[in-house]
Design a protein around this nucleic acid. Sequence first.
DNA 1: CTGAAAGCGCTTACAG
DNA 2: CTGAAAGCGCTTACAG
Lengths: 341, 341
Amino acid sequence: MKQPKRVTIYDIAKKLNLNPSSVSRALNNGGNVSIATKQLILKTAEEMNYKVNSVAANLRTGNNQTIGVIVPHINQNFFSNVIAGIEEVTYQKGYSLVICQSNESAEREIKCVDTLTNQHVSCIIISVSADFKDSSHLENIQKQGIPLIQFDRVADELDTMKVLNDNESAAMEAVSHMIAQGYKRIALLEGPQNLNIFRQRKAGYLKAMKKHNLPVIPELIMENAWTKELGATATRTLLKLAEPPDAIFASTSDFAALGALEVATEMNIQVPQQLGICGYSNESFGTIANPSITTIDQHSILMGKTIAQLYFNEPDSGISISENQIVSIRPELIIRNSTLK
Amino acid sequence: MKQPKRVTIYDIAKKLNLNPSSVSRALNNGGNVSIATKQLILKTAEEMNYKVNSVAANLRTGNNQTIGVIVPHINQNFFSNVIAGIEEVTYQKGYSLVICQSNESAEREIKCVDTLTNQHVSCIIISVSADFKDSSHLENIQKQGIPLIQFDRVADELDTMKVLNDNESAAMEAVSHMIAQGYKRIALLEGPQNLNIFRQRKAGYLKAMKKHNLPVIPELIMENAWTKELGATATRTLLKLAEPPDAIFASTSDFAALGALEVATEMNIQVPQQLGICGYSNESFGTIANPSITTIDQHSILMGKTIAQLYFNEPDSGISISENQIVSIRPELIIRNSTLK
DNA sequence: CTGAAAGCGCTTACAG
DNA sequence: CTGAAAGCGCTTACAG
């Protein structure tokens, strides 16, 4: 795997009988080189197929234009969209992106952090794993003096830059919409409560129920229903209750909502007439399902762009950053047939 | 954006009255350190919260454990799955991944190549943009002595490692299946022909038609139908022909197939009875559509793993590498209702 | 087993 | 405007 010798500024200098420092100045548009020699150097560099070694340059200057990103899975819609958004901005700035996936494992997340801090990246962007327990590895990033931006799934207590969805408001809006449609016994499919986002969505659900004077029925709240399969299982349990729900808010994802929809169809329960279903995250299949699934769009690409802009401290107009460096993105309720009685 | 001073091996050495070289040896498990001093050094490093600067180490040793990946879009299912597969393997090897998106632009692709070669990555993995015209930037990678692996969308003529789908066979199998179902006037939605994958899929279509003695009708071959919208437009044109097709092979993607399906539904044409539809790439919505969509699975995660294994020269059992370093992955036809008369 | 020195390729004050 | 030197943080032959 060893690579052959590359052309260096030293090689160029030797060829032209110049000092390497002059070559460096010419290549970096630093002043103090005569136009003639500069052009000669540029021409020769081109001919010799010279490429700067940015590893060496970074070591010398101390700032390497690289940003690290840690996400649970690269190949999940939400995360890959956020990354695409980040990349869009960092590319413009000439920064590179190093990407790691934690695979929802805290242990692996810690290793990812190590890799990135060892590389002395300029910034680390993270959305924590479902397995997240304690934030000492994140504190360590800050101790190393590396700016840290958390997004979506965050350690609330840590004082870092954060880009968040307003999950609570979105959940509240969704549940209120269902109540307005006449649903009363609304079940909740919830995700792991160690993650802030699922706590917030649950809080939104509870607030909406309270606000409209509907009782919160413990047996209608299903833990850990955050995949299609787990959503289906939870729904099967719910629909077999003596008093089954008349609606399901799959706060975890559209996948869970789809699982619920399939179980309902299988049990000959009419959606939306007998059972309303609302998902979360606006997956592409939402419009294709029958009926189409009401959901919440998280504006994931915008979220990614905003994260990068926050780092460069250049937010888009319309995005406001709080004093403590927190940006909140407002998700959008998308009403479709699955909740329209 | 400047970062504060970090702890170096020099700091540790000074504190312990040792030479930096001893510290380095201790930290790298190199022999030639007494167990006592080694433990003392490790303990002190821990206490001082030392993190190796891998930029410096890489500069010194000349091999930086980083692999560059260039794809048209990070947030497309196929590519994000391939990347996830690559990451799975490189993570095990302690390599990092630098990811760039070309946005289907040749110009931007060239810049991505520059960024990665400047970083002296150990390897570059690429799937070229739709805008791909000439491969001089790829040749340049090789001139720099950096191993190059192309996947899926490749410059055929270049002598590099390649991981490919057998698109031609897959297309042939899909079209043969449709013919076996009794479809005769089979239309083709094709993609940009400067990309090898779309040429191959078209070739598979033509071979299947020929093999079964069916005429190839030029007006049934639609150019550049590679998004949902373009697929829908092409389908509308096709279905208004005096002699419309009785089947459509959307060789570009399931998105195009979905566009076709929606237009058919809108025009009250029964799928699969009056019109068979087959897509490509097994998107998650394929099973949800009504009818479910026949498609071809590209085994994208496996493809990613295979790419990384090819670099490390450790293929999974069952994967065979040809002498010229080409691996072919066999896609899988997934028959669903949209082609079952 | 430990130390002293050189060097990876670059940039940047400092002289001249 | 050009050159000579130091140094970013590390690793690795080379002495002792």
